[in-house]
Amino acid sequence: MRPSPSRLLNILVPVKRAVDYAVKIRVNSSQTGVDLNVKHSMNPFDEIAVEEAVRLREKHKSSITSIQAFTIGPPKSVETLRTALAMGADSAVHVELPESAPAPEPLGVAKALRAWIEKQKEAGEGKGVDIVILGKQSIDDDLGQTGQMLAGLLGWGQATYASKVELDTEKKEAKVLREIDGGSEEVKVKLPLIVTTDLRLNEPRYASLPNIMKAKKKPVEKLKPEDLGVDLTPVMETLKVTEPPKRVGGGKVESVDELVAKLKEHGFTAV
């Protein structure tokens, strides 16, 4: 039986451009944040999210109509979208912020996503987003809230910290294995659905050259926060960022007596 049009699914994958995890971060001289003049790449959890979306389509073929990548950030964030497109996303949306704008917070991002998702729904039959797959957190601010906030704002089901996603396109539901303390938990969630990805979900693919070339021709829609009617100004103020104290090397002692003496010297006494 051919799937009826109402069963076709659209996946939205929000991604973030972040300082690459291999970069040794340094606090900037004004102590307002870290030095951003370093290698950036797609937040690794978001890369897993893109990979999962592409794998779902490889498995469910034409039941999944579209995979759209979405990002909010400075002009260079378009590179992150190109990576997502090269991995297999069909189109992308870039909510562009000025180079100097502060990084938006999870609530702002979630509101922007809600606005986009609602806009898609209004766009007509078959355009609405059915699944949002995003990283459980981004490795720069480590806040880990966007997925949950978005689920709350939309009133959708959520399956966070996913390590396995099984989609049933007929029943319009998903079975998701979640990483929890000391093991895993399996949940069944009705669509529409928010999935946040954990490290073990999959291993993202390389972008092949033909796909990189194709990605250059895929559409990227550019928006401003005002177009979505959201204000991305942070509500939190960062007062000061400092590096942790440098670790000082230990010393060797020759005897137990010397060790005891050293301990006393540093203020440790027998209880």
């Binding site: 690459d20 995890y21 390389y206 972008a207 092949s208 050259l209 990189i212 070339m213």
Partner: peptide, 22 residues
């Protein structure tokens, strides 16, 4: 890479380009 892929008789089948340090 573009010129390698777009010629009539390409020298390469395909390839992958690193997207990040990992």
């Amino acid at each position: 890479l573009e010129s390698l892929l777009e010629v009539d008789k390409p020298l390469i089948n395909t390839g992958v380009l690193a997207q990040n340090p990992a």
